[in-house]
């Protein structure tokens, strides 16, 4: 096993997609619990920057989703209290809490996804399927920082020319708008050089352009892909055959613990902890090869 980010982006993409889908659609507290534990640890080990702030936001989402369900869903038999003739049931609260945890896990998962699926990886996937769209995305990514820099340059120049005359809000907005306008002109007029540069290198002479990427599909990618497909297939089969379903209404039941279900839990845990395991393994190996810090 190699560090997770070294895998082919398509494998990574599929991995995250399936992991999230299972968490979202299994409706199984054990699965959600596994995803929650795994994604918290993974997020901490992969995306430490700004995680605290993210957690604050996630907590708000959690509270909102957990509250929303019992307010709108009046199924369930164990009535806790009655508000405006509407019963608030224990089952709805529990379901809400599970949904909240599920959403939290998925949000964390997408946070990790966002860190690992850098723009060039996502571009590789888009580009393979849609070469022209891939090109548009790549061009946009190239232009965004260029525009950002130009905006700062224009602002600086205009400040010395007295654009922001008085420091009040209206002048400020007016100034910002004329900077936006200047940027538009700049981009459109100079973009023609970019367009010419594209034509000069044969853009559009062939209807089907290739979309090149430095990423390769190695043997280890094939192994990982097979592994992911087989294990997720197994779990999805379980979902389809209602082997994993946990009913909350009318009365909450315990999640299933059949052999099949337990196998699913183990496999899912294996999948969900994969990035963390890869990271720990990599640490140990690095330490072996290069010595202590």
């Amino acid at each position: 096993m190699k560090p997770i980010e070294k895998y082919n982006p398509a494998v990574l993409f599929l991995y995250f997609l399936l992991l999230a889908s299972i968490a979202m659609f299994a409706t199984n507290p054990v699965m959600v619990g596994i995803a929650f534990a795994a994604m918290n640890l993974t997020a901490v080990s992969y995306t430490r920057d700004g995680l605290g702030r993210a957690y604050l936001f996630f907590f708000v989402i959690f509270i909102l989703t957990s509250l929303a369900n019992p307010i709108f869903s009046h199924n369930g038999v164990t009535v806790l209290l009655v508000v405006n003739d509407n019963p608030i049931t224990l089952e709805a609260v529990l379901y809400g809490v599970m949904t909240g945890i599920m959403i939290l896990s998925v949000l964390l998962l997408f946070r990790v996804f966002g860190t690992l699926m850098t723009s060039d990886r996502l571009l590789y996937i888009f580009g393979r399927a849609f070469p022209k769209l891939g090109l548009l995305l790549s061009m946009t990514l190239r232009f965004v920082p260029l525009f950002g820099r130009q905006r700062r340059k224009i602002e600086n120049t205009q400040r010395t020319l007295g654009l922001y005359k008085n420091e009040n809000a209206i002048d400020n907005i007016k100034g910002k708008l004329s900077v936006l306008s200047a940027m538009t002109t700049w981009g459109l007029e100079n973009g023609i050089v970019t367009a010419d540069s594209m034509s000069a290198r044969g853009y559009g002479i062939k209807r089907t352009r290739t979309s090149f990427s430095m990423f390769r599909f190695e043997r280890s990618d094939a192994v990982m892909l097979t592994l992911i497909i087989i294990s997720c297939g197994f779990i999805f089969l379980g979902i389809a055959m209602d082997r994993l379903k946990t009913d909350f209404y009318p009365r909450m039941q315990l999640p299933p613990f059949s052999l099949y279900a337990i196998m699913c839990y183990v496999i899912y845990a294996g999948l969900a902890f994969l990035p963390l395991a890869a990271k720990i393994r990599d640490r140990i190996i690095q330490r072996k090869v290069f010595g202590q810090e």
Partner: peptide, 18 residues
């Protein structure tokens, strides 16, 4: 799609992104 149209679409997109 001509190269110039591509660039103009990109410029507008960048404006929206920024």
């Amino acid at each position: 799609t001509g190269s110039r149209r591509m660039v103009i679409v990109v410029v507008m997109t960048v404006l929206a992104v920024v």
